[in-house]
Design a protein around this nucleic acid. Structure first.
Length: 567
RNA sequence: CGGGGCGUAGCGCAGUUUGGCUAGCGCGCCUGCCUUGGGAGCAGGAGGCCGGAGGUUCAAAUCCUCUCGCCCCGACCA
């Protein structure tokens, strides 16, 4: 490809819309352009990268027995109504109506479609396991699209769906995919960490997310430095915190006036108590019924864990009226003493001796409250947000926290969709069974963005060879110099014959411009043909990632390049 | 959805408070000269219904109303 012909409009200045390195460089290097909020056009260079990531994904999916299909973007409402997700998905679903007033959505995912497809054809255990995947655009009307490809409303996603006859089969599918993902991301040049995660609205119980650790990530992950424990903050658990050996003596309860002090910060300051000495009481509505959650004052409640503990379908903070009704006090003075609703306490909250709690009475708190003596809890569970420094639940070593970009997720779905959609098969005994499903997604665009986050410097992108849009750019310092132009052309053609993906920068630009563009776009290898080396019959090779340079005789360039990109 | 900010040339911005005669600057783009190892220089040039609609006025990028779009922060943790 000739640079003069390549549609890669590079920008000297950063477009105002871009915050992250990946977003900035994808625009500046001419990989993509924005069409609407969270919706992008891929330009030739960007598309080449996307296609390469997809190719790697296809290879690894095929390798574990995946078969590619292509399902529609536009999906009928009926299927989604069958599983209940037409309502459950809410505002995030792009919906449309056709001329006959029939309702459709732009698929945010394809569980319904694929299950519908399979239920019609799969009858027997002999047809299992079945692993189908597809790569295509999906749509979610994100509340706030941002960060370029990382949180878009239209995005390219690979999804695989597995259908097995039993749990053991599902387990096999799941781990086959897990390991395929490790290979995929590693081949893309990413440093990825699989973490235990929450399954959220999709359903199912076992799930891992594949996280690219990066400061700009949207998700928080906790991982252990001593063992292999790693989890999304939504799921992360904490080990037992060591208690002091001699528990302090329990003191008598004492009501204290705390006028207008409704937050932990205000109360601790006013009373001169430590936040760890307080127990926060929060009133929630679980499927409409009030329930109280207790966490230590310096801890935060993890709603996702709390909801899992309660096993309820909906969970939200109670409204002011409900709080006043169940506690008898305005917001800010709730406490466990005398509460007549179910109370769930976090483990750490139950260990506070002589705690400060709300008095369920306006402008009062109670000091020296003790569990067992002064109040009872319905149950104790792990319901708080784990933070860095908390002990690892597996080995007790302190956990570290980091931000991550989620590039993939694997789920064990079980029978949630097959049961709802009556996708069944007959086992050896002739008994009808629901298919056991798993689903496995990779955000393709997000993966590209994540690669840039992990592979860039102040000059631009430094692509890993495996997904670089082109491997090599040949830059004659002065195209008007006949000797340089001729040699550059020869090198370019020799590389093409060797199946190297190469661009010749044939533009009549000053060298600085060409070097800057080469660095910005991020070709892994640059071959400079200039007067200095050419006099000696040589050309210069520069490796983008390391900045390493060397001179090589012109006729050895091809061999060197081939070896470098293969190895 | 709440808060904040922004829409003026392909990109980055000034001008808007205090309305005023030809709407500017830098980069990019086109032509020519010159230059060629890290985004050169000179000269000439093209390109804008000032996001859109309505209103006020002798006069609107500027004031008023409505609308559309985009960016950032937040979304209940007593």
């Amino acid at each position: 490809m000739l640079m003069s012909q390549l549609y890669a409009p590079t920008l000297r200045e950063t477009p105002a819309e871009a915050e992250l390195a990946s977003h900035r460089y994808m625009l500046r290097a001419g990989l993509m352009r924005r069409s609407a909020a969270g919706i992008y056009t891929f330009l030739p260079l960007g598309l080449r990268v996307v296609r390469k990531v997809e190719a790697i994904i296809r290879e690894e999916m095929n390798r574990i027995g995946g078969q590619e299909v292509l399902m529609p973007i536009v999906q009928p409402a009926e299927l989604w109504q069958e599983t209940g997700r037409w309502n459950d998905y809410g505002e995030e679903m792009f919906r449309l109506t056709d001329r006959h007033n029939r309702q459709f959505c732009l698929g945010p995912t394809h569980e319904e479609l694929v299950t519908d497809l399979v239920r019609a054809e799969v009858r027997s255990y002999r047809q299992l396991p079945l692993r189908l995947y597809q790569i295509q655009n999906k749509y979610r009307d994100e509340i706030r699209p941002r960060f370029g490809l990382i949180r878009g409303r239209e995005f390219i996603m690979k999804d695989m769906y597995s259908f097995d006859r039993d749990e053991a089969g599902l387990d096999e599918s799941y781990w086959a995919c897990y390991h395929a993902y490790e290979r995929i991301f590693s081949r893309c040049g990413l440093d990825v960490r699989p973490v235990e995660a929450d399954s959220g609205a999709i359903g199912g119980d076992v799930t891992h997310e594949f996280m690219v650790l990066a400061d700009v990530g949207e998700a928080v992950v906790l991982y252990c430095s001593a063992c292999d424990y790693a989890a999304n903050v939504e799921r992360a658990e904490s080990g037992k915190v060591a208690q002091s050996e001699v528990p302090p003596k329990q003191l008598p309860m004492e009501e204290v006036a705390t006028p207008g002090k409704t937050t932990i910060a205000e109360v601790t300051e006013f009373l001169g108590a430590a936040p760890q000495q307080c127990i926060k009481t929060m009133i929630y509505l679980a499927d409409g019924e009030p329930v109280a959650a207790l966490v230590r004052g310096d801890h935060e409640l993890n709603e996702i864990k709390f909801q899992r503990v309660l096993g309820c379908a909906s969970l939200e903070l109670a409204d002011t009226a409900t709080i006043e009704r169940v506690t008898g006090a305005p917001v800010g003075f709730a406490g466990p003493v005398g509460l007549r609703i179910p109370v769930v306490a976090d483990h750490a909250a139950t260990e506070v001796v002589n705690a400060v709690v709300g008095a369920n009475k306006a402008d009062y708190h109670i000091k020296n409250v003790n569990i067992g003596r002064d109040f009872q809890v319905t149950r104790t569970a792990d319901i708080r947000v784990v933070v860095a420094g908390d002990p690892c639940p597996k080995c007790g070593a302190p956990l570290t926290s980091a931000y991550g970009i989620e590039v993939g997720q694997v789920f064990k779905l079980g029978t949630k969709y097959s049961a709802a959609l009556k996708a069944t098969f007959l086992d050896e005994n002739g008994t009808e069974q629901p298919l056991i499903m798993g689903c496995y997604g990779i955000g393709v665009g997000r993966t590209v963005a994540a690669v840039i986050e992990q592979n860039h410097d102040e000059h631009g992108i430094a692509w890993p060879v495996a997904i670089a849009p082109y491997h090599v750019i040949v830059v004659p310092v002065t195209i008007k110099d006949e000797q340089q132009a001729k040699t550059a052309r020869e090198i370019y053609e020799a590389l093409q014959r060797a199946d190297v993906e190469v661009v010749l920068d044939d533009r009549d630009e000053r060298p600085g411009v060409k070097f800057k563009d080469a660095d910005l776009i991020g070709f892994p290898i640059r071959i400079t043909v200039g007067p200095k080396s050419l006099r000696k019959g040589m050309a210069e090779i520069t490796l983008r990632k390391t900045g390493e340079r060397m001179e090589l005789p012109v006729d050895q360039i091809t061999d060197y390049v081939v070896k470098t990109i293969k190895g």
